[in-house]
Structure formats: structure tokens, C-alpha cells
Amino acid sequence: MTAMSVAPGTEAPVLEVTDLRVQFATDRGWATVVDGVSFSVGRAETVGVVGESGSGKTVTSLAVLGLLPSPPARVVGGSIRLGDTELLGLRRRELEEIRGDEVAMIFQEPMTSLNPAFPVGDQIAEVFRRHRRCSRSRARARAVEMLGKVGIPDAARRARAYPHEFSGGMRQRAMIALAMCCDPRVLLADEPTTALDGTIQAQILDLMRSMRDEFDTAIVFVTHDLGVVADICDRAVVMYAGQVVEKAPIDDLYYHPRHPYTEALLGALPQLDGGTEVLATIPGTAPTPGALPAGCRFHPRCAHARPECAHPTESAADGVALRWLSDSVASRCVRVDELRLRGAR
């Protein structure tokens, strides 16, 4: 990896997802659950993928890893580039070479990654040996080194312990050690702190920050928690009903949101310092993939909706196109130029 001489995110992206489309088989035919999603992540940069349940954020991250079960899922379009390599269309064997090596992942539930039947250190050593083809002793040493780096005390001894002998927070650390052992270029993190207690979440976010800075990893952080995004992300992509509705550097996103859905989410958050009489709500519920409204998908719930919002725009045959407002901010709102939306303060 290169030294930290260039500012994060200013060179060519490490991971670039373009116009990704994923469908799921349903009783009523194919439903498009990820509809033209594009985003990129640079070296040492953290990009949040934010949305509520059903927004398509997890399906997007699984698609990047080639981990979507098929059937029922199929990727019907787009491109996922890791540096110069196109990941879509790679054979299973080729993807397995990349997964765990150049692209790694961590999940909400550490036992998704850890096998309960083997000592934690052995599992890290095995992944390292498979990708680096080194000696057993070298791989073992790497496992102990990584467990130490993620803050597991007495790592040489704890490497021989089984996952069930670790606490929840320690398991999360072990999963991070496993993910980072091959020094991946990209780390996909899907709600990695959601199941953790507050004080342990703070530890894990600190650990991810320090790992990112040490290894220059590009992180895609999938979460529903706008507090976590404000804490760890540089930029964020907001998803609604399978589409990106806004993307922006986080200060722009929080203080000058350019999509009414972002505004509504920020406005609905209960505040730790109090002062809210009645909590704001977003009326209605998010649409299901089989029953999407015409035009802007958020318009039936939007406080700023006008009749024109229900009609597709010329640039997008079946909805509203995502439009760049500057070189770093994009919005999918028809009325974006006339609206002054409220941010976090």
C-alpha cells in the first residue's frame, strides 16, 4: 500500500459501482430491488450507505461481494469495478480469490464469519494461508499479530480459544481481525455495530477508524444509524426504495440536505440533548418493489410533493433521474432547485 501522501478519496476510486440493478424472483415475476445504484469509494475513505429496512442497502453490499443467492436474486445490469478488475461476470473461483483478500466484509452478527467449531486463530491463519500461500507458522504468527492489533489482550493465548469463549465485543474484534488479515483494499461493513452495546460500539468504531488509517482501507459502511454515519463516514449515499436519492460529503448531507427524504430522516431523529416536544414522523410506509409509485418514489410521503412529482422526468423513462448538483453532491428530487431543506441544525 502507498503511503498517506495523497489526501483520501482524491485519486482513482478503489471500488466503483455503476448503475447496479438487482432483481428478485417473486410470485408476480421479477421485482427490481436495487435500481441503478452508483457510488465509489477511494483509498482510506469511508462511504456510508444509509437507508431504512427494505431500501436495498444490504442487497447492494452483498452484490458487490458476489454473495447474493441465485435464485432468487439476479444481477441484471451495471458494473462493479475493483481497481481495473470488473467483478460482475467473474467465475465463482475468481471471485473467491478476491473475496477475503482484496475485498473483505464484516457483518452485524460475527458468527456469520466465524465458524463455531474451530479456534479463532486457526480461522484467521487459514484465510491468510489460502490467499498468501505461506507457511503454517507464518500464518499463525499473522493471526496472533492481527488479534493483537484489534485489541484482544493476550492474543497468543486467545488465538487458541473458540468463538463461544469470546464476549460479543471480542467476537466483533475477532471478525475484524479475520477481515483485515490480508490487508484488503475494500472493507464492506454491514451494520457491524448495530447489535452492540453503546460503550462497545464506541470501541469498535474507534478500532475501525484506526484500522482504516493504518491499512488505508476503503470502507463501505452500510447502516441505518445516522449517528454512526456522522461519526465515521466521509461521504454518504442515502437509499430509498432501491434507489440512491442523495449522495454527498457528510457535512453537506447533514447541514444542507438536497433530498426531502434525507431532510425527513434527519428531522425525525430524537435528540440526545432533548428539546423536542413531539417527534416528527414520515407518513405512510416505504413502497414494496412490486408496487412502486410513478415518478418520484418518495412523493406519496413527501412534505414538499407537487403534482409534477408523480410524473416521470424526460431523462428517466420510469421515474426521476439522479442529478449532480456539484462535483460531489447529487439528488433525485424534481424540485431540488426551488427547495430550501432543513438540516441537522
Partner: peptide, 27 residues
Amino acid sequence: EALLSAVPIPDPQRQRARERIVLQGDV
């Protein structure tokens, strides 16, 4: 104090400026 300090605030500038107490170890 530590519990409150561990809650990330959905306000990036305030979150960056906060002095955080990260408790060591597990319960």
C-alpha cells in the same frame, strides 16, 4: 457519563468536536 458520551450524535461537526470517553474492556 460514559454511556452518554458513547452515543454518536447525528451532527458531524459536533460529533467531531466532542470529547469522548471510550471505556476499556467489556462488562
